[in-house]
Nucleic acid binder design. Structure first.
Length: 652
RNA sequence: GCGCCUGUAGCUCAGUGGAUUAGAGCAUCUGACUUCGGAUCAGAGGGUCGGGGGUUCGAGUCCCUCCAGGCGCGCCA
């Protein structure tokens, strides 16, 4: 706001497109500054200090709100001092007026964005790698909604893949009693789970049998043969085993939704791969690709008999023989690969496939939003798909395949859609050697290094286990069980959010379970402290009872200035997070905001010998002023935490 | 071999061209008022920003190159 005025004026004077501002190294220089004259020196071929003087003189002639002084420092910085009392009043009034809306903007202009995230194979419990995906995805959804995008949050469920088939094989054939191969009565099979000695949840039980069965495949050829058979039956769909597989997948999906709801993650639509298959999406896409010449049928070479997309150098000679960079979409046996279906699905997301799913309500979520699911026997509905922009949250290892999908869109002539396809790639979560050793993996915990998580080997930290461990650690100092749950979710979400998406997370229990310093707990603590102060100051009401009319202060201290400056940054941070599609700027901001607030709380006035608690201040105007800053801090922190998917606690 | 990512304090990370002295947290050490929430705060030590070139008035940030680590390059997903 305040800088925008100055930027506008400078843009006019220098006729430039953008004016970047920053903070001067010394407070005496001013409250903010710009180096625009330095970069203009090149263009104008004049000394930057001369340009700065000229701009400063012109600016002094223009009436700029809140700016009391403009000065120049070598080699050509323009520095601005602001009228702090008036500025603070404007910020406080704005936050008070906008409340929970403070920070939002209309940059999205209702543009329809589809964000797909989580996408965990429905065959075992979620682990912390999946959690990173869900947290990044959900935070991006929340951020874009606050920027006024029309966002659909989708979770893709690969219910017809090998992973589900493996668990089905494990359930049907690994332990007695085994399935007879034709019955539609699976009660004896379900009993194996229901009677499990440890009474563990279904997703945990599957975690164990999945790793057991993948290892059993190596030794047991007959079991391996069952795998191909089950795969085939699931693909054929119309049989008891396929129905059983669907039931298993649905049960796991319920478990996953329960897990992520502990972290405040919700969706609009569940997209099932079986529906993509049943609705014949691929056939449509295949015909389009053929018609557009986007794919070719190979009659010779390594891909003979396959339909392929031409990529990179294509088929070429290497030292190791003939290799192909082309991507096979239809195998020589006529079966489409996953990427093929993904092309059709991506077309659906943009509404250019010419086909749609049918839909049914799945149920109401804890946040009060209805969740929908694609369905073979549902109703048609126009509110899904048809997006202008599609964001796929998938880890970095699938970059190549995502590019193939987008490339095919381009080959089909959907260049705009290809351009608006975003692979939000993020690095994986791995275990530190110490963490792996704690899980019983045979590694030297003293040796620095990492271990990849592996569903097949059953190596990984389950999401619910991490949350439970966090709740356990917090239990002692917390008022209620519910607060422990919320605080644990805050800790875990913050932990996953603060690391930029391009960086691998090396998971370590001590680091993840920390409750001091740069953590979600610290942010919650600052917020709860503010609420507590307000509750004591205004015992007749809640924080909402804080004074509505705000009088500009006569004098402004440094901690007050710093706090207000940080609060005023929030809208820009939200925009940045939306532009970068990353939770990290929000997490860092939340911590900085908590820090400046705590500083203000500890030492509101560095010039006096003894700090007076806000609630004990005698001067009513000063008391009201200080408490108003506490209140707008409280509001801003609550808004920021909400964007991070964290419920702000009023007490801990 | 080709492509992408990462390399900043003992450890975990911020910092997507701007300011003498590169910031946080953890860990370590020393402290904290008759306390509005001590899960806090103040202070101390700790850095060739992987190495080397270059562009620029100015580089942790941009370009080139080299080194180290990770991931990808399936008729798997």
């Amino acid at each position: 706001m305040i800088q925008e005025d100055a930027a506008k004026a400078i843009k006019k004077i220098l006729s430039v497109d953008d004016v970047p501002f920053n903070v001067p190294p010394k407070r005496e220089f001013g409250d903010f500054s710009t180096a625009i004259c330095l970069s203009q020196a090149k263009v104008q071929k004049r000394a930057p200090i001369l340009i700065a003087e000229e701009v400063a003189n012109k600016l002094r002639g223009v009436k700029l709100q809140y700016i009391t002084e403009i000065n120049i420092t070598p080699p050509g910085y323009l520095n601005f001092k602001i009228d702090q009392p008036r500025y603070i009043k404007s910020v406080v009034d704005r936050v008070r007026k906008q409340g929970a809306e403070f920070g939002t903007s209309t940059v999205g202009r209702n543009r329809r964005v589809l964000v797909e995230h989580t996408n965990v194979n429905p065959n075992k419990a979620m682990h912390i790698g999946h959690l990173r995906n869900a947290i990044i995805g959900d935070t991006v959804v929340r951020t874009l909604r606050k920027l006024n995008y029309d966002v659909q949050a989708c979770d893709y469920i690969d219910d017809t893949g090998v992973q589900v088939a493996d668990v089905v094989v494990a359930m049907l054939y690994m332990d007695a009693p085994t399935y007879d191969g034709k019955s539609d009565d699976f009660s004896a099979i379900w009993a194996k789970y229901e009677n499990n000695s440890d009474k563990i949840s279904f997703d945990y039980w599957c975690w164990d049998i999945y790793s057991r069965v993948t290892q059993a495949f190596d030794a047991d050829e007959s079991l391996k043969a069952r795998r191909a058979e089950v795969m085939h039956l699931i693909e054929a769909q119309d049989n008891p085993v396929a129905e059983f597989a669907k039931e298993v997948a649905a049960k796991i999906v319920h478990a996953h939704l329960a897990t992520v709801s502990r972290l405040n993650v919700y969706y609009d639509l569940l997209n099932w791969e079986s529906d993509i298959f049943l609705r014949g999406f691929w056939k449509t896409a295949f015909e389009s690709l053929k018609a557009a010449g986007g794919i070719v049928f190979e009659t010779q070479g390594p891909n003979a008999g396959c339909w392929v997309v031409k990529m990179g150098r294509g088929v070429h000679q290497t030292e190791d023989g003939v290799r192909s960079e082309d991507k096979v979409l239809v195998r020589s046996n006529g079966i489409v690969v996953y990427t093929g279906k993904d092309i059709a699905y991506q077309m659906w997301k943009f509404g250019v496939l010419g086909q749609d799913f049918l839909y049914n309500p799945w149920g109401m979520q804890d946040n009060g939003r209805q969740l929908w699911t694609t369905s073979n026997e549902g109703e048609s509905c126009e509110r899904f798909g048809r997006a202008q922009r599609v964001i796929n949250v998938i880890d970095v290892r699938q970059s190549y395949l995502q590019q193939v999908v987008y490339d095919c869109l381009r080959k089909l002539g959907y260049t705009k859609e290809a351009r608006n396809s975003i692979h939000l790639d993020y690095e994986v979560v791995v275990l530190s050697n110490a963490a792996a050793a704690e899980l019983g993996v045979d590694v030297d915990a003293e040796e620095p290094g990492t271990q990849a998580m592996s569903g097949r080997k059953g190596v990984g930290v389950k999401a619910d286990d991490l949350l439970d461990a966090m709740v356990g650690r917090l239990a002692e100092k917390v008022a209620t069980q519910q607060n422990a749950d919320v605080l644990a979710a805050a800790a875990v979400r913050y932990f996953m959010s603060r690391i930029t998406t391009g960086k691998m997370i090396v998971f370590d229990f001590d680091e993840a379970l920390r409750t001091t310093g740069d953590t979600g707990v610290y942010c919650q603590y600052a917020h709860a402290r503010a609420c507590s102060i307000l509750a004591k100051a205004y015992p007749d009401g809640t924080a909402a009872a804080a004074p509505k009319r705000f009088a500009a202060p006569d004098r402004v201290t440094i901690p007050e200035q710093e706090l207000v400056k940080k609060i005023a940054e929030y809208p820009a941070i939200l925009k940045k997070a939306g532009k970068e599609l990353s939770p990290a700027p929000l997490a860092h901001y939340a911590f900085e905001l908590a820090t400046v607030f705590t500083d203000y709380y500890e030492t509101p006035d560095p010039d006096v010998d003894r700090q007076v608690p806000f609630i004990k201040i005698k001067d009513p105007k000063l008391r009201s002023y200080r408490l108003s800053l506490v209140d707008v801090f409280r509001q801003t922190m609550a808004n920021c935490l909400d964007t991070l998917g964290i419920v702000a606690l009023e007490r801990i």
